[in-house]
């Protein structure tokens, strides 16, 4: 656990943790609002967003792609809402129509465009390149206090940290309106909370988290982190405040264990190559959720019979 760890593992691990937390925070509310699959929809439309951004700018640079992906997510949310409201179609089906069509358009554009010279492909969008986000200039733990070396940290880390902090602060500031309108929308409307704006803001922050995370870790982690840590956390406690804390813990744990298993796990069972870290992080989050489903203290729904007994 010395110089090599700081060089090769510290930054990917940190990026994984920050991405997981940034997605898990809005995920808590999405789950309670029965909108868990919005995360699924958003992560699918990231692909057409980056392809369109590439076709317009002609370069693979970070900001246009992030902007394109964010625009695509927001567009998708608006289309879903329009189909739901004007077409009177239930939200699940409206989502299904929208994200699959946009994803198809993205794949088609990708095939049509000349991408032989650049690295932009579906697999990248799906599972990212967490393993490659290393910090070569680092020489050990002391590099963490050396400004010159710190300046060479991968951009993805700075970006992901900024987004995670932004979402954390946003959740803190809008905590009360979020909580009240998630629990009781009519009541929230009656005390002048702008319910639709809160709902839209939540979805936009989910989109921002997804977009920042996909670049580093791909969309599998995004979907898994939106849902698995908050779902497991819901089974651990009956208070929203503690649920958020548990979800952050589970997200962190998934990122660390997933990264470690992906990098070192294969060696333990005698294989040479590492496996996909993004896939492994998603798998570990699923295992944590499975454990919670079997063992967590508040895993059961309170039945009607129990209600009467009180």
């Amino acid at each position: 656990m010395g110089a090599e760890f700081v060089q090769l593992s510290l930054t990917p691990m940190l990026i994984g943790i920050l991405a997981a937390i940034a997605c898990a925070l809005p995920g808590n509310f999405l789950i309670l609002r029965r909108q868990a699959l919005i995360g699924d929809a958003i992560s699918h439309v990231v692909l057409p967003g980056i392809v369109v951004a590439f076709l317009i700018t002609g370069t693979i640079s970070t900001w246009p792609m992030i902007f394109g992906a964010a625009a695509a997510s927001i567009l998708a949310v608006i289309i879903i809402e329009a189909i739901r409201r004007f077409g009177k179609i239930e939200p699940g089906a409206a989502m299904g129509v929208t994200f699959t069509s946009m994803f198809a358009a993205g794949v088609l554009l990708l095939e049509q465009s000349d991408t032989s010279s650049v690295h932009i492909d579906v697999e990248h969008a799906l599972y990212g390149n967490l393993e490659s986000l290393i910090w070569l200039e680092a020489e050990g733990w002391h590099s963490l206090i050396d400004p010159a070396t710190l300046a060479t940290l991968p951009d993805e880390l700075t970006r992901m940290a900024a987004v995670a902090v932004l979402i954390g602060i946003g959740t803190w500031i809008f905590w009360r309106p979020l909580k009240i309108s998630t629990f009781d929308e009519t009541f929230a409307g009656s005390i002048a909370i702008p319910v639709s704006a809160v709902g839209f803001g939540l979805v936009v922050s989910a989109a921002v988290a997804a977009v920042a995370a996909f670049d580093a870790v791909g969309s599998i982690i995004v979907i898994a982190m939106f849902i698995c840590p908050p779902a497991a956390a819901r089974l651990m406690t009956n208070r929203l405040e503690s649920q958020i804390m548990w979800s952050i813990l589970f997200a962190t744990l998934s990122a660390i264990l997933g990264y470690v298993f992906a990098g070192y796990g294969p060696q333990w069972i005698g294989l040479d190559n590492a496996v996909s870290a993004a896939g492994m992080i998603a798998t570990v989050s699923g295992l944590i959720l499975a454990l919670a489903c079997f063992l967590a203290p508040h895993r059961k729904r309170l039945g009607a019979a129990e209600n009467l007994g009180q």
Partner: peptide, 18 residues
């Protein structure tokens, strides 16, 4: 469990896919 179907769908699809 007390989780709703949408959460179950999302969890299964992302974890199996991962």
């Amino acid at each position: 469990t007390r989780l709703a179907e949408d959460a179950a769908i999302g969890a299964v699809l992302s974890v199996f896919f991962g």
